Computed example of a mutant assay.
Amino acid sequence: MSSAPRPWSKKSLAAQAMGHVDPVTKAIVSPIHLATTYLRDPDNQYSSGYVYGRPDNATVREAEAVIAMLEDAEAGALLFSSGMAAATAVFGALDPGDHVVAPTVMYWALRRWLAEEATRWGLTVDFVATDDLAALRAAVTPGRTKLVWLETPSNPLWTITDIAQAAEIAHAAGARLAVDSTAASPVVTRPLALGADVVMHAATKVLNGHSDVIAGALAGARPDAFWARIQRIRSGQGAILGPFEAFLLLRGLRTLHVRIAAQMAGAAELARRLGAHPAVGSVLYPGLAQHPGHAIAARQMSGGFGTMLSIRVAAGEAAAVAAAARVGLWKRATSLGGVESLIEHRASIEGPGTPCPPDLLRLSTGIEDPDDLYADLDQALR
Rank of each mutant, 00 (worst) to 15 (best):
A164G: 12
A167W: 01
V187A: 12
T161A: 10
A184W: 08
R176A: 07
I163P: 03
A173C: 04
L177M: 14
T161D: 03
D162C: 02
I160G: 10
S154D: 15
D162V: 04
S154N: 15
A173V: 00
A184R: 05
N155S: 12
I160A: 11
A164C: 09
D180M: 11
M200T: 03
P186N: 13
V188P: 01
L194N: 07
T152L: 02
A178S: 09
E151N: 14
V179D: 00
H171G: 10
T189V: 10
P191D: 11
S185Y: 05
T161C: 08
H171K: 09
G174V: 04
D180S: 13
P153L: 13
R190W: 10
A173N: 05
V179Q: 00
S154T: 14
V199W: 02
A175G: 04
V199S: 09
N155R: 12
T159M: 15
N155W: 13
A172Q: 07
D180T: 10
A184H: 07
M200Y: 06
G174H: 01
G195T: 00
A172W: 00
V199T: 13
P156A: 15
T182I: 04
S181C: 14
T189I: 06
M200I: 02
L157M: 15
A184D: 09
E168H: 03
T182N: 02
A164M: 09
Q165C: 09
I169S: 01
L194D: 00
R176C: 02
A170N: 00
I163F: 07
